[in-house]
Computed example of a mutant assay.
Amino acid sequence: MSIAATVLAQQSAAQAAGQTTSQIIALALTVLTIVGMWLTFRKAGRHGWAAIVPVYNLYTMITITGRSGWWLLLFLVPLVNIVLYIVIVLDLAAAFGRGTLFGIFGLWLFPFIGFPVLGFGRAQFEGTPLF
């Protein structure tokens, strides 16, 4: 085997290890977000399992904030969906007595931190629970 082939094999192995590590980290952050969202939904009086259903979790967040369920259709419009999601997370932060910075940084940019803070923390839902 030539030196070039050996170097390529080593680089390929290192790349595979790096990809595996990245995937494990992404999975851990996803699980952390889901658990935090599950507990946040439970605090708001909703079903926790809504956190694992892709479109229903967005609908649940919309209803927790007191917005109409029809907002879900607006999420189909490109760029509008980004603005609406920011509005929803800001309203969600306010529903738990948190401020704008928590909504932006905790729930929008870093949901793997924000949702567990709401779910595991002392934040109380200040709205009216459904169940």
Score class of each variant (00 low, 15 high):
70 W>I: 11
31 V>T: 13
106 G>M: 08
29 L>S: 10
27 L>M: 10
127 G>Q: 02
40 T>C: 13
82 I>N: 03
27 L>G: 12
63 T>R: 09
130 L>H: 04
115 F>C: 08
84 L>G: 08
11 Q>N: 14
106 G>S: 06
107 L>A: 08
51 A>T: 00
63 T>I: 11
111 P>A: 14
16 A>M: 02
1 M>V: 12
105 F>G: 09
17 A>T: 04
57 N>S: 12
14 A>V: 08
66 G>S: 05
97 G>P: 01
57 N>K: 09
3 I>H: 13
65 T>R: 07
99 G>F: 04
24 I>R: 05
72 L>H: 03
69 G>R: 02
46 R>P: 02
47 H>S: 15
121 G>S: 11
93 A>M: 03
111 P>Q: 13
60 T>Y: 03
100 T>V: 14
87 V>S: 05
113 I>N: 02
85 Y>F: 11
40 T>R: 05
59 Y>I: 04
8 L>I: 09
13 A>H: 02
47 H>T: 08
110 F>C: 15
83 V>G: 12
41 F>D: 04
69 G>I: 00
98 R>T: 06
51 A>C: 12
43 K>H: 07
106 G>V: 09
5 A>C: 13
15 Q>M: 15
76 L>W: 10
25 I>G: 08
26 A>T: 15
124 Q>R: 15
15 Q>L: 15
32 L>F: 00
42 R>I: 02
99 G>N: 11
36 G>S: 12
2 S>V: 06
55 V>C: 12
82 I>F: 10
22 S>R: 12
44 A>H: 09
43 K>L: 09
28 A>D: 00
49 W>Y: 15
78 P>M: 10
73 L>R: 00
119 G>R: 14
77 V>G: 03
31 V>Y: 04
90 L>Q: 10
112 F>R: 11
97 G>Y: 04
13 A>C: 06
48 G>H: 07
118 L>E: 00
100 T>S: 07
81 N>A: 04
42 R>E: 09
98 R>K: 09
11 Q>E: 10
116 P>N: 12
85 Y>K: 09
88 I>H: 06
129 P>Y: 05
24 I>N: 03
32 L>M: 13
16 A>D: 04
122 R>S: 15
56 Y>T: 02
105 F>E: 04
75 F>E: 05
77 V>R: 00
50 A>G: 00
105 F>R: 07
80 V>R: 01
55 V>Q: 06
10 Q>K: 12
65 T>N: 07
76 L>D: 05
